Amino acid sequence: MFKIGLDLGYGYTKGVNESGKTVLFPSLVGNAYQRNLIGLFGQNLNNLIENMHVVLRNGKEEQEEYFIGDLARREGRNVSYAFDENKINHPNTKAVLASASALLFPSNDEPVHIVSGLPLEQYIHQKDELREMLKNFKAIVEFKGYNILKIVRFDKVTVFPQAAGAVYYAIMDDLQKYLIKGSYIGLIDIGYRTTDYIVFVVDGKLSLREDLSGTLDIGMSQLSNAA
C-alpha cells in the first residue's frame, strides 16, 4: 500500500510520499477565473506548485474551481485560509487536501494509505471526525493547463498528534542518544495558528505526560498581524 503523509496546516500544507516526493504550498484558496493572458509576461508555467488552478469534481456534473497556494496569493479573488478551529469540513481544507494528495499519489492505481494529524488539543476532540472525513473523501482532481487528472480516495487512514510525530522524527536518527531511562523529552511545535507543547518520559519506551502537554491558541500568524 502506497503511503503519503500530509500536514494540512493553517499556514502551509506540507506533504511527502514513500518515494520521497514532497509538496509545500500556502494553505490559501481563492475563487478561480479564466486567465486569458497567462504566459504573456514571462510567468514560469513549468512550476505546477506555483500555478495550481484546480478543478474538483465529485463524480457528478458539479465541479468547483480554485486557485490554490501561491497562485491564490498572487492572483486569487476572495482568498482565505481555513482558519476555523474546527476546519475539518471547511471547503478550503478539502481543496488543499485534494490538491496535495493528487500531487503525491502514485502513477498507477495502487491503494493509498494517508497519515495526517492535528494539534494536540484538537486531536483529543476531533480525531474521529478527521478520520471519517478522510475515509469518505473522494474527488476527481484536474490541474488545469497541465494535463493531470487524478482520482483521490484513501484506502487506509491514520490520524496522529502532530507534535508527537515531530518528536519521533527528531529522535529516530539516534535513538540511543535520547532514550535514557528516567529522562524527559519535550518539544515545542510552533505553527501558524497554534503552538503545541508535548512531554514524554523515558521508561523503557516513550510515555506521554499528558499533564505537561497541550495546545496554545497562538502562533506565527500573530507575528504577521503585528508586523
Rank of each mutant, 00 (worst) to 15 (best):
V16Q: 05
K87P: 00
E65Q: 14
N31F: 02
A227H: 07
E110M: 10
A166W: 03
F2W: 14
Q34T: 14
G165P: 04
G219R: 11
Y123D: 09
M133S: 08
E210K: 15
D217T: 08
N46E: 15
L97V: 05
E61G: 02
Y33A: 11
I4F: 03
E85P: 00
L216P: 00
F137E: 03
P91I: 06
L120Y: 14
F2E: 03
I88E: 01
I171G: 12
Y178Q: 09
L175M: 14
H125K: 08
G145V: 13
A72F: 07
F67T: 00
H113E: 11
V167R: 12
R209W: 04
H113G: 02
D173G: 13
V55D: 00
I185L: 15
G9R: 04
Q162H: 11
K135F: 01
F105E: 04
K150I: 04
L216A: 11
E121Q: 11
V152W: 06
H125R: 07
V159S: 05
L212V: 00
N89G: 01
E50C: 00
A72S: 06
L56V: 09
G145W: 13
G15A: 03
K127S: 14
P161H: 12
T93E: 03
N78F: 10
K144D: 08
Y66K: 07
L223I: 12
H90K: 09
M133C: 12
Y169S: 12
G145N: 11
R77W: 02
G59T: 07
I185D: 11
K87V: 01
R77F: 05
K144Y: 11
E142H: 04
G39C: 08
G76T: 10
N108Q: 10
G219Q: 11
D196H: 09
N17Q: 04
G5E: 02
V201E: 13
